[in-house]
Design a protein around this nucleic acid. Structure first.
Lengths: 342, 342
DNA sequence: TACGATTCTGGAAGCGGTTGCAGACGAGGA
DNA sequence: TCCTCGTCTGCAACCGCTTCCAGAATCGTA
């Protein structure tokens, strides 16, 4: 474990020069720089980031707060964030913020405060005003992925538009009896997502002059079993059965398809299904979907905070950025069977 | 941003005493301690972990190296590790080590070296001897989840026994024509897993006097589409069709079930299917499985490294620990249709 | 009452870097 | 030739905490 002093000795220069040579700051002649570099290599020297941080005030760490890890959307975000951070030489500190208030407050009151991160990325966090305030109070660059967050620059697809797009696709195919299966507000995901996708659904129906009633919408868990369970209910009664279902997430849509198959309901002949996400399993189920790219959103969030960190005075151009989402057509949607409904 | 000096002033004591009071090390009278504590609270003081680390040499960070994030098994491990670490006051630094050699060597040569972590947890890493050596050379506590790793204490289920258990379950039901669908060695997962599960399968067949041939085994991607694709091939030819399939992971098994359903093959009447993991989706598909608990394995790995960190001289009792795995019976396995075979 | 053992506290020396400052040097312009 | 300016380097002062050491106060016991 050699220190900077050893390198200085071996290179025949002072600590200050070693520091300048290795960090690339200040004047160092090329000859000296290379002497220092070889000395450092020979000794296997590597700067103590602690000592360095202590004086510079920079940790080269970014904290990531995320409500779930084990779900495609969130896992992809982490992957994107991790890759982007490491590319830029930053380390990623992961905080899994579950609803469990004990662990939760600990993150806010203990972990985030200790001057260990330069910036924070908050992922679809349903946080209280108090918590948002305490994040802001840290005075560090923050970016969020997900719905608008008080005072924090965020990034997400336009959930309303995506839901409208999905619904319009069904309407364009000729469907008039469409149901929406959305997320349960008790879930960990930012509630904005659920309400916005419902909103987009309603908007599209309204624009097409189609009615919306309590029967047009059901909430469930945001996963395959959730979609399956609710579809079993919805599809059980043939008289009320819609000709199309817009699920707020692909996992839910896949659950719907599985339930339909079990009930002998043909997709898309008897029932069209569309989801949002373009989940890796969508291909296998031929699921039509609205594609979004969480890994890329993660990278963009990293951009947002790193840019604030590295170009002083820079602030994000807008408080909420919408990233694009497009329709990916597959075989789970088609025109309704003629005469089946109306 | 008040420092320890400010607290000392306000409490009317020296920096040394503040340090002792707040860290709980050394003698401090209760009255002084409480004065220091209120002063610290009033100022919103929190120690600079950098400064602290610099002198103590401890960072209170643990690095986690993991090949994939977005898969149930790996996501669960991260969740377990994260929870356990935060419980003990450690932060988690995440390194996603993909096959991509560029990013990979960067982790080994740059990130792990910088004295930023006290210990390392390596998850089912297929690492080269060089890489293993460079990990060991850090001189830090290490624990691994997955197959034996040269010189590194590891932790996993007994893959051979688990595979044997699964196969024996099928044999006990009366199956004699059993196929195994395993992982592709090109996958990111530690290759030991694949070969061991195959080994357990062969052992069980052998013990029951059943033949094993090249036709008894196929490899595929370790996910639902992988299982689906290979099952389409296997089940396509009725004459060669086995009465039971042991899939090396539940995701693969679910792919098999989906393929069987599409081909009109009844599970379990025409085909029994068993997997390993007890994946959350196993319930939905009625999948019989060998249950393991990756989150708990994560916690145990944390135990292993933290214990080494906090009790000097302690080393793990054994180089490789086997954690239990039990059979969970559901509806995807049953006796073969009488007369269907043999 | 005396004395050693314990408890408590402050001074000061680091931990391993970074950076302001000043001096030395060579080059270009007046 | 002299002066100025840009380049290069070392000295030394920190960054904010921990801990060794020594001295003071308190306590228990002979």
């Amino acid at each position: 474990m050699s220190g900077i002093e050893d390198v200085a000795l071996r290179a025949g220069v002072s600590k200050a020069t070693v520091s300048r040579a290795l960090s690339g700051r200040g004047y160092v002649s090329t000859i000296t720089r290379s002497r220092v570099e070889t000395a450092a290599n020979e000794l296997g020297y590597v700067v103590s980031s602690n000592a360095s941080s202590l004086v510079t005030g920079r940790t080269n760490n970014v904290g990531v707060i995320i409500p779930v890890i084990n779900q495609w959307f969130f896992g992809s975000i982490i992957e994107g964030v991790e890759r982007a951070l490491l590319d830029r030489g930053y380390d990623l500190m992961l905080y899994n913020l579950t609803k469990n208030t004990e662990a939760r407050s600990r993150v806010f009151e203990y972990f985030l405060v200790r001057k260990r991160v330069d910036a924070i990325i908050a992922v679809t966090l349903e946080i209280s005003p108090d918590e948002a305030a305490s994040l802001l109070a840290l005075g560090k660059p923050i970016a969020g992925i997900g719905g608008p967050l008080a005072g924090i620059p965020t990034l997400s697809i336009d959930d309303i538009a995506a839901a409208r797009l999905a619904t319009e696709h069904l309407i364009a195919l000729g469907h008039t009896n469409i149901m929406h299966v959305g997320g349960d507000s008790a879930e960990l995901m930012d509630f904005h997502v659920h309400s916005k996708r419902l909103q987009g659904f309603r908007d599209a129906l309204g624009a097409a002059g189609l009615p919306f009633s309590d029967e047009s919408y059901m909430a469930t868990h945001f996963d395959i079993p959730g979609g399956y369970a609710v579809a079993k209910q919805i599809l059980g009664d043939p008289r009320r059965r819609p000709t199309a279902i817009f699920a707020a997430a692909d996992e839910v849509a896949i659950g719907v398809i599985l339930a339909a198959r079990e009930l002998g309901i043909s997709v898309p002949d008897d029932l069209s299904v569309i989801g949002i996400d373009n989940h890796p399993l969508a291909e296998l189920f031929g699921l039509t979907s609205i594609a979004q790219n969480p890994a890329k959103q993660g990278e963009q969030a990293v951009d947002l905070v790193i840019r604030q960190l590295e170009t002083s005075g820079w602030t994000p151009p807008s408080i909420h950025t919408m990233v694009p989402a497009q329709l990916v057509m597959r075989s789970s949607t088609s025109a309704p069977r003629t005469g089946a409904q109306r």
